[in-house]
Amino acid sequence: MELLAYAAFFLTIALTYAIMCLGLNVQWGQTGLFNVGVAGFVGLGAYVSAALTTPDAAERIGGFGLPIAVGWIAAMAAGGVLALAVGLLTLRMRSDYLAITTFGIAVALQLVFQNAEVLTGGAFGMAFIPRPFAGLQGQSFAFNMVNLALTAAVVAGVYLLLEHLLRSPWGRALRAVREDEIAAQALGKNPVLLRIQAFALGGAIMALAGAVQAHFIGFIAPGNYLPMMTFQVWAMLIVGGSGNNRGAVLGAVLVWAIWALSGAAISEIFPAAQQARAASLQIVIIGVMLCIILLWRPQGILPEVRSVSRHLGIRNKDS
């Protein structure tokens, strides 16, 4: 029972990463946009939702005690608007300007989380974020199970939405822009507009992931949203297979499992004094793994499925 409850907890966290991966997949996998500020978008969603849903607190603004669903929707809106602004600013220019700007966004948001104490609680973060099904908190097994079900439902919802969009004319236009911008332009598609839309959608999904994760854990602090997180999400998507939504989910669970297991192994093997040091080895391993996959199997475990249109007879076959 104990073990099952832990497994459910582990899987729930992994699935929140899966939502981030799905968001990144819209930006990178479908559109080829390199976002180095994933942690910033995730953190923004978490903080926006937390500010709206926590009970009133004396030391900071916010704490409206609104329902969790309102927090989630507001988080998505905030993430979408931020991504829209970044997209408008950079998507007309060279592709790596976006990378640099999103990197800057994450750094700047991290500073806001740290320093804007009246809004974010500063370095101590925010506690008492309402957890879904809080009434069950006494029974850890039931509580973890319903939360797992809820998170899985969110993943499934995002997945189905994205799969639907992927096969829609919009999704095809998106991939056309990624593959051959000039040809797509010649067919009357507006590449900049399509990219901005995809970037905003991805940003909204990442912010949703942040909100879901924050409500499940019940506590957030600036330290949760370091560049490390961006890096993990990237590793998940690349390992799983960019362009493939199922790959994104698989990669999230797989890399999170590697991460959690190697973390557990380190705390077993190394003495307490050396653990912080050994933990940096985990990052080295994931970084090297990312580079190796980029070199040897850039398509990841589940490669992108070539889908043209359901109106052409060859749906879902490798062409």
Partner: peptide
Amino acid sequence: ADTIIIVMASFGASMALRSLLEF
């Protein structure tokens, strides 16, 4: 490889290099 793949590889390598220093 696409520019952006090289940028991504540099991002991964940067994480690994930095953590190696920390180790």
